[in-house]
Design a protein around this nucleic acid. Structure first.
Lengths: 237, 237
DNA sequence: GCCGTCATGTTGCGCCGGCAACGGAAATTT
DNA sequence: AAATTTCCGTTGCCGGCGCAACATGACGGC
């Protein structure tokens, strides 16, 4: 299948960013990516299986989640076009801890990992870039997870909220920002009960630390937030 | 410096495993690794700085830790000869979240990341292997961290202990195993209070789930352990 | 309009687990 | 072997937060 119509999408991925058309031509010729269309609800990747392809979302959106052993499932990420999945996994020989499902009807392309890691004899300069991008992508996912751990080990809910607020404000580059997360979603990320989150946010508003309505937040006192984060850290004796 | 005396150590790393002598010769010639000796207490890597080398411990041992903003520090890992550090970091443009310090007098070699990712023109087959190893190494670190998150999001201490026990038993390939962790260390990993850990382990012994003395553990009822892990998962509503 | 659904706030109860303090065993030092 | 330090278990206290239950308002479909 000809992927030219999707070159802009490909270039939007962290793996293939800034690649020229002719470079992409070469790569696609070399990789011969598998392309498949999925209906909403179909699985693109099943937990428990090995995987040796890097998936790229071309159209529609997908969701990744873990199956908890009792049958329930916990959402991990949602991704739209230019989203990458299976990237970390394909470099490992482990079985996938996550499943990936089509959130809407969607289209995905798969690059064989072996071809990425073991480029064909007539190497192009761009292939080095691809390798570097792969490593960078995985590394960045590692650090994102690391940040999550940093958050999770905080013993007080207040501290976790503070971290999240400060992080989010930094990302937005402003003390006022809004997110698409629902309260329940935020509670899940912060690993706490939804009502407890509401309660704590309420308290923090009373104390004049911030204002919030639905998905929008406004930090009023950054310094005090930072201070409160220190207190509620780990300590455990 | 001639690294031949350390080839066996190099081969013990996940990065350079199974490389033949002549392959290592070629690589060392290509990489010209920096080698440095450190005294106990010296820093091999400082938090807050970028890093673009992969460090390999040749002699002695090192420890990696995070500086918490209030000056304290939390240990992350200890590594002896053939340990790798800075590997995930070097692929990213981020500043290091961890510092690495010499735990004893030690010797370390550094491979320049750019040379690893961007092999010289006369490519050797072994270099592809190296690249693959690099990706695999980073991926594995990712999944180790992922496992940690899995553990941390369990709301009950009991569930966290169960996961840890089951994981450790699987790793040991036996229901009886011992670890070098101290109780305090285990408590830190499980993100709980040391006394709370003792209390819970005591209860679990009373219930006939396991026996433990110091660093040695013996699982008596794997099934019940697994069942208890299910109950104390996330749920949050 | 009316009704069902979903997102959010609120509140009382109860318990898990953090914390501090102590005592004893084990390991290490002198 | 005495002394010192580290490690581990135990226990009482009580506060944070999970949990369930309910109320409210926003949204959308009929």
């Amino acid at each position: 299948m000809d992927l030219r119509p999707y070159y802009d999408t490909l270039r939007a991925t962290s793996l293939l960013q800034n690649m020229r058309d002719d470079e992409l031509d070469n790569m696609m010729q070399c990789f011969r990516p598998r392309v498949r269309r999925y209906q909403k609800g179909e699985f693109l990747l099943l937990a428990g299986y090995e995987n040796h392809e890097v998936g790229i979302v071309l159209e529609g959106s997908i969701t990744a989640f873990k199956n908890t052993p009792d049958g329930a499932s916990v959402a991990i990420t949602h991704m739209g076009p230019a989203g990458l999945f299976g990237d970390v996994l394909s470099g490992s020989s482990l079985r996938s801890p996550v499943s990936v499902m089509a959130e809407t009807d969607c289209l995905a392309a798969y690059l064989p990992y072996q071809k990425i890691i073991h480029p064909c004899s007539h190497l192009h300069e761009s292939h080095y870039q691809l390798l570097q991008n792969l490593v960078t992508t995985i590394s960045n996912k590692y650090f994102a997870l690391d940040r999550r751990v940093e958050l999770l080990i905080c013993k007080s809910l207040r501290a976790r909220i503070c971290i999240w607020l400060l992080d989010e404000a930094e990302r937005a580059g402003s003390n006022t920002f809004s997110v698409s997360l629902t309260r329940a979603g935020l509670a899940e990320y912060l690993n706490c009960d939804r009502s407890a989150l509401s309660r704590e946010l309420g308290r923090m508003q009373q104390e004049g630390l911030l204002e919030t309505y639905r998905g929008s937040f406004k930090i009023l006192d950054t310094d005090r937030l930072r201070a409160q984060y220190q207190e509620g850290k780990v300590s455990h004796s």
